[in-house]
Amino acid sequence: MIRTVVIGAAGRMGRRLVANIQESDTLELAGAVEYAESPFLGQDAGAVAGCGNAGVAITADLAGALKGADAVINFATAGVVESTRLAAENGCSAVVGTTALTAADKAEFAKLAESGARIVAAYNMSVGVNLLFKLVKEAATILGPDYDVEITEMHHNQKKDAPSGTAVRLAEVVCEAWDWDYDKDVRHGREGLVGARTKHEIGMHSLRGGDVVGDHTVIFAINGERIELTHKASSRDTFVKGALRAVEFLAKAKPGLYDMQDVLGLK
């Protein structure tokens, strides 16, 4: 069994991670961590997740939770690099599903990997979304920049960042296929008398409402036809199951920095 620590165990994703680990034949819950002021500290992680007692109390002591553990799953937004470094120092692999990673964060992950850490960091852990990345790359390569590309994403009304990390990655995939630049060529929304759409832009549009888990669509349009590639997530378990696959992947992997394309063999 792979003894696994969940960071952010009382959050939306954390609760589903705990519940799915409890049901897993290959993973065992070794620790559950929350921020120092969390009202859930001291409570059983399984009870908080609604899956019965797990025998693991939620704690703010990550270092203590890591003792005897094999892996860490982190969907939290704060202190991601620090917690990953601490995991590596304790010999644990790390799966990072945080979407708001900066270039500096990724550079730090690369340094940790060079020093022997095993890390999977991905914008989106969903198997279906990672297949979408591959399909969008193939479509962009085959169709070429004669096609207009527009990207829409919709999430629940509590999501704080826009566009989503997944939508950003979808635009990056198109940019990589066409040798475009994300910062220069992605246009975030339109308002007013903006004139005709230029040929050298990717439209990006963020929608928020209700309890939508995550919808993403990439539209390739040209005179006479339109191709739409869409993924819709109806449960957070789609991301959770991908994260558990990443933990299992790292248990056998050499030190390095990986993404879900590596985990799923899509490269």
Rank of each mutant, 00 (worst) to 15 (best):
E191I: 11
A36H: 09
F133V: 01
G55V: 07
I222G: 01
I119D: 03
Q43T: 13
V48T: 02
K232I: 05
F133G: 02
K252G: 06
S24G: 11
D25I: 02
S234R: 04
H188R: 06
H188A: 04
K106V: 14
A251H: 11
A140F: 08
G64F: 10
D161M: 14
T84A: 14
L257D: 00
R12F: 07
S83F: 07
E228V: 02
L86R: 14
T166V: 03
R187D: 01
A57V: 06
R245Q: 10
V168L: 05
A243S: 12
A63D: 13
V6T: 12
G209E: 02
V247P: 04
R208L: 08
E34Y: 13
G189E: 04
V18Y: 12
C51Q: 00
V18I: 15
V168M: 10
S206Q: 01
G91C: 13
G192M: 08
V96E: 04
I73G: 05
L101V: 10
L250P: 00
V81I: 05
D25K: 15
T102R: 11
L264I: 02
D61L: 07
V247A: 05
N130P: 05
E28P: 00
G79Y: 09
Q261H: 07
Q261L: 11
N74I: 03
G79K: 15
I119N: 07
N223A: 12
G42V: 03
V174T: 06
E248M: 08
N74L: 03
N223W: 00
D181Q: 14
G14F: 09
G68C: 14
S164Q: 05
A221R: 15
E153N: 15
E172I: 05
E114D: 14
L132Q: 15
L170Q: 12
L66F: 00
M154H: 04
L66C: 12
A60Q: 09
L62N: 10
V173N: 03
Q43I: 01
A100T: 15
D105Q: 09
L132V: 04
A243M: 11
D237I: 04
R16Y: 07
A122G: 11
S115E: 12
E28I: 13
G79W: 10
Y147P: 01
V168R: 15
T152V: 11
V95Q: 02
D146G: 14
R169P: 00
G42L: 03
D70C: 15
A45Y: 08
G116D: 04
V247E: 00
A10H: 14
S38M: 14
T230Q: 07
F239M: 09
N20T: 01
I227V: 13
T238A: 08
V56R: 12
D215I: 08
G64V: 01
G50T: 01
S234P: 01
K232S: 06
G224I: 07
M154G: 08
A167T: 05
D211N: 13
K137W: 04
E37F: 12
G55E: 02
G64M: 05
W178K: 03
D259K: 08
G192F: 04
E37C: 02
L62C: 04
T152E: 11
L101K: 13
I21E: 10
A253N: 01
A87R: 05
G31K: 09
E172V: 05
C175F: 11
H155Q: 14
S164F: 03
